[in-house]
Design a protein around this nucleic acid. Structure first.
Length: 425
RNA sequence: GGAGAGAUGGCCGAGUGGACGAAGGCGCACGCCUGGAGAGCGUGUGGGCCCCAAAAGGGUCUCGAGGGUUCGAAUCCCUCUCUCUCCGCCA
């Protein structure tokens, strides 16, 4: 959520941001906010004056009673005022609810460093790391490798749940677990993150805070008791400090969490239908930071580097892309995608997304910090990044390290996590 | 799932219809005191919104949430949420 004051003071800037994101100004209704906000303040001034008088009259009644005088005239006057106050309070609540409704649909303002563009072709490659493997044989996609090695079972995954669910078996399951442990170990022992294991279901407040609700409910799995399955650990972990004030000296707070993630993938029919790239359930190690506004963009750089470190340890080829305005997530002011080279199919695939949400989520979630030198609490900046998506990492490893006989070399970084296994198959 | 108890400021805790974010204590900050520390003494110490160009200042709201009774609610009534205890079930 933006600050209403930002909209009040510079509505053109907000509208420009919405347009650059390729969003309609009807959906993100800046004019509507301006109108209703003006109305709200109008009513407030009026009702607060009435309340002031009512408070004064209350004092009078007490004074009169002490003197044993008749209070009836004042009480009579109060009756009318109370009625008006009640009515106007109702108006204020309605107006405030309406503003909030509109505000929740207005996206974050992209940072000045974000490339402006209408689609993903405007994304800017920032750097590359590693090299694609050179095969002397015809390389295979991971779903073929996985089925032949009997470590990925798509048929039975679909039988148990539905399409886009996969059963991992033997070394496939172990690889998943090894990646998870490697990532958590590196982030907690070397990158300074504290490991957390959050609830994976969250309530509506939680999902509204991080921006999934109200706009993106159709992408979520909603349980019958109105709890929702987290599509990423970003959701529960960012909410750890909802409605809290953090001492400034505690910033930045860095958490890393493994969780399964659940996404309906509504509207992605026919996309990545083969393999384990796009699943309704997948595993991910996530990084979340609560940062000081003054250095949150530095924290974004270091978080991105933390994610890159994982891919480097795995010896994978990847590139870092700065997302353009149109590709930027709703809550993000700036975002780097890490795209790993899928050697079997010969293309880059997003494996991590590192975002600085600035104060957008913090305002929705009411997460603030108390400045050490004193003064009003301010909103923190929240950041989140995949560190990294485990299923996609597993697929990338399979494809990158495949041999001509269909077996897969275990990269050295993973061997200790797989009981010393050096080859799968 | 059944029965009961509770929710007040950073923390503990008083407050059952009338001035007041709300006694007292702890904590914290500052000052005095001290060679220094402690003790002691004194002062201060939540957040939101609105008015104001801003500061200063002022107003208003806030005792888990929402609604009701009343001229007036932390206090009375209703609903909900959460926490704790006991019973049942259970990894």
């Amino acid at each position: 959520m933006l600050d209403v004051k930002t909209i009040r003071e510079d509505p053109e800037r907000v509208k420009r941001a919405i347009t650059e994101r390729g969003m309609s100004v009807e959906v993100a209704d800046v004019e509507g906010v301006l109108e209703i906000d003006a109305r709200r303040r109008e009513i407030l001034v009026e009702v607060e004056e009435l309340k002031r008088r009512s408070n004064k009259a209350s004092e009078e009644i007490v004074a009169l009673k002490k003197k044993g005088r008749d209070t009836a005239p004042v009480v009579g006057e109060m009756k009318g005022i109370s009625e008006s106050i009640k009515e106007m309070d109702t108006d204020v609540r309605e107006v405030e609810a309406r503003i909030r409704e509109l505000m929740l649909d207005i996206p974050n303002i992209p940072d000045g460093s974000v490339p402006i563009g209408a689609d993903e072709t405007a994304n800017v490659e920032v750097r590359r790391s590693g090299k694609p493997p050179e095969f002397t044989f015809k390389s295979k996609p991971h779903w073929e490798l996985g089925e032949e090695l009997d470590i990925l079972d798509f048929q039975r995954g679909a039988k148990i749940a539905s399409s886009r669910f996969t059963l991992l078996k033997g070394a496939g399951a172990l690889l998943e677990r090894a990646l998870m442990n490697l990532m958590l170990d590196v982030h907690t022992r070397e990158h300074g993150y504290t490991e957390v294991f959050p609830p994976i279901l969250g309530n509506r407040d939680t999902f509204t805070s991080t921006g999934q609700l109200p706009k993106f409910e159709e992408d979520m799995y909603v349980c019958s008791d109105d709890l929702l399955l987290a599509p990423t650990a970003e959701v529960p972990v960012t909410n750890i400090f909802r409605d809290e004030i953090i001492p400034e000296e505690n910033l930045p707070i860095k958490y890393s969490a493994y969780t399964p993630c659940f996404r309906r993938e509504a509207g992605s029919y026919g996309k990545d239908v083969r393999g384990i790239i796009r699943q309704h359930q997948f595993n991910k190690v996530e990084m979340v930071k609560f940062a000081h506004p003054d250095n949150s963009f530095d924290e974004l750089e270091s978080m991105t580097a933390d994610a890159e470190d994982i891919l480097e340890r795995l010896g994978l080829h990847f590139r870092v892309v700065s997302l353009c305005t149109a590709d930027l997530g709703f809550s993000a002011a700036k975002c780097y995608d890490l795209e790993v080279w899928m050697a079997g199919v010969g293309e880059f695939k997003e494996i991590s997304s590192c975002s600085n949400c600035t104060d957008f989520q913090a305002r929705r979630a009411n997460i603030r910090f108390k400045p050490a030198v004193g003064g009003k609490p301010r909103f923190v900046h929240t950041l989140n990044g995949s560190g990294v998506a485990i299923g996609r990492a597993s697929a990338a490893v399979m494809e990158h390290y495949q041999m001509d006989d269909g077996r897969i070399v275990v990269p050295p970084a993973l061997q200790p996590y797989m009981g010393g296994m050096t080859v799968i198959g």
